[in-house]
Design a protein around this nucleic acid. Structure first.
Lengths: 348, 348
DNA sequence: TTGAAAGCGTTACCAA
DNA sequence: TTGGTAACGCTTTCAA
């Protein structure tokens, strides 16, 4: 007995006795199943008075759900994942669910599918939230579809076909940033891509090109990075060493942008006077570099929250309709944050 | 029926039938209760063959534990908390437990206790991991003690009396860093404290003073910060503006150290040639600034892992001994990481 | 050392 | 619209 003094919670039976109805009726009220209005009111009153909340363990023992939602990610817990955890956890709790944060420790792509499968089966997860780049793994998607486990993908690539998803409009965000730079008079603008495979980076690149395409005298330049600080640093050194180099650099994430900043420092470029830099993500790093980095913020908590809602609404709540059309992709509004690394293009 | 095709898991009954024993016996084997060696072997073989793992829901419905461990923290999910989540989650899973990550959304100190209490009762948590600064909240500690919920505190202040805890030896780590600086010839060394209330910062300060005390010609200087980038920046400006200012600055965390770095950049001080800077934590920021910051790493994953072990060993495993002496404080080895912001003191 | 039977608090099925 | 009663898969109590 580890928990001697644990206070007794009231049960369905307690409520039923006090309200003068059967256990089953109380259960129906709690589960929002059809009950006469009068009875519902009476029961709800007792429920409120007792502060009753159903316990998940027996529910899931008897029923077919575990009230567990798994959030799958690759280590480490990045600031992005951290935000998702906050938002999803809060929303899940509100709905009587628990959020399980699961890190995939295996490197091999095939092993990942096995890992995810084990997880779903062992922990009996009711729903899955797939974070990037897991959200783009076709094998995991197929496995989850086969097991018929409701899944919500965070920021998946466009090609992903199954299930609901949530993300920002990367392409549009990138276009807006580029337009902002263009409006500031910048013409020689470099774009730094992230890891080759990552679709997000590709969409950001597309947005960059959307904006640049319409400006005759624009001199866009694209460099390949890998999302690391180091790759940003190296790209920065290369770019800024050019005789007629860019006056603005737009990196696909903050880490690379921080690398560019450092390269600029080393070469004695002042920001934003002689060079503008934009990042993406608004991670902690953005405010911990000098000058504070202009960037794009993804509302991560809202994304986490929304993903739980999609899971609950689309697959867990009404056990009825499973239409193929019901694959909503919810777009969350991004936010462009202008701090101190962007300004008008240097004249002359 | 949300989960049509969910594969059937094997149950105690299945194993029992195959092994030719009763359900209860299989249960005993699983729970590591006394069973004859022969029987145990036979049962284990079937268990292994079937890949059987007990489902937590019915266990907790029938028994007195929920197999849920709560990790309580204040928002946001900092890199420190993120590391704990990784380590604790992994270890919990290994032991058949689930980790619930819970963020406290309320600001008021009194409301926090209510929040934690609700959580424990509603979710029926078997154990609690308290992260700083929650680990120093006496009201929460008292409430948890009253409810007799096993609790493990992460990096609590020394005065904390109840329950096991885990942390690094902050005082010793700070002393070692200071000694390193001293050995490099630095004499004018400034120490930047964190938030007033935080005991960790006080212990680091004590370590700083331990080292400095034994050096006759040392010229230590202590400044008060609040763990923020901004406070580090301001302290840096003040310190470096002095005519005979410090040649080394040791900040109580990385964010403040990053602030010092920026101040140094602004004032044209080169690092590490004319100024050495040390941070604490080895957060993401440490590698995303220029030059890469020398710092102290806390093995956060290991701390998370250990906290779960302490919970399981000390309170959840053997329902027997509750001796007051059983309040282990496990010290995890820290790691001093010399990157590029520390070097010998400038000569002349 | 082992087993049979009675729960745990909920949901599910079928009848009233 | 309601209410019995049988599960759910495990733990627990008590006997053998």
């Amino acid at each position: 007995m580890a928990h001697a003094g644990r206070p007794k919670r009231s049960t369905l039976a307690d409520i039923a006795a006090q309200a003068g109805v059967s256990i089953k009726t109380v259960s129906r009220v709690i589960r929002r199943e059809p009950v006469s209005e009068a009875t519902r009111a009476r029961v709800m009153q007792v429920v409120a008075a007792q502060g009753y909340r159903p316990i998940t363990a027996p529910r899931s023992a008897a029923g077919d759900r575990s009230y567990l939602i798994g959030l799958l990610h690759l280590p480490p817990v990045s600031p992005f994942v951290a935000g998702l955890i906050m938002g999803a956890g809060k929303e899940a709790r509100k709905e009587g669910y628990h959020l399980l944060v699961e890190a995939c420790e295996v490197d091999d792509a095939a092993a990942r599918t096995t890992w995810a499968r084990q997880l779903v089966i062992q922990s009996n997860l009711d729903g899955i939230i797939l974070t990037p780049p897991l959200s783009d793994d076709p094998a995991i998607g197929a496995m989850l579809a086969e097991l018929a486990v409701p899944t919500c993908s965070i920021a998946p690539s466009g090609e992903q076909s199954s299930g609901p998803s949530v993300g920002i409009d990367d392409r549009r965000a990138a276009r807006e940033v580029t337009e902002l730079l263009l409006a500031g008079g910048h013409r020689a603008i470099a774009f730094l891509t992230g890891a080759e495979g990552r679709s997000t980076s590709m969409r950001r690149l597309a947005g960059f090109e959307d904006a640049v395409r319409h400006v005759e005298d624009a001199r866009p330049q694209v460099m390949v990075g890998d999302y690391s600080f180091r790759s940003g640093f190296e790209a920065g050194q290369t770019l800024l060493a050019q005789k007629n180099g860019p006056t603005a650099v737009f990196a696909s994430n903050d880490e690379m942008a921080a690398g560019v900043l450092v390269a600029a420092h080393k070469l004695g470029r002042s920001m934003p006077e002689s060079l503008s830099v934009f990042g993406f993500d608004d991670s902690l790093i953005a405010s911990a570099v000098w000058p504070p980095l202009s960037t794009v913020r993804q509302p991560m908590e809202e994304m986490g929250c929304t993903s739980v809602q999609l899971l609950l609404d689309g697959a867990l709540r009404p056990p009825a309709l499973h239409q193929a059309e019901l694959r909503p992709h919810r777009i969350i509004a991004h936010q462009i944050i202008e701090r101190e690394t962007n300004g008008p293009a240097p004249t002359g």
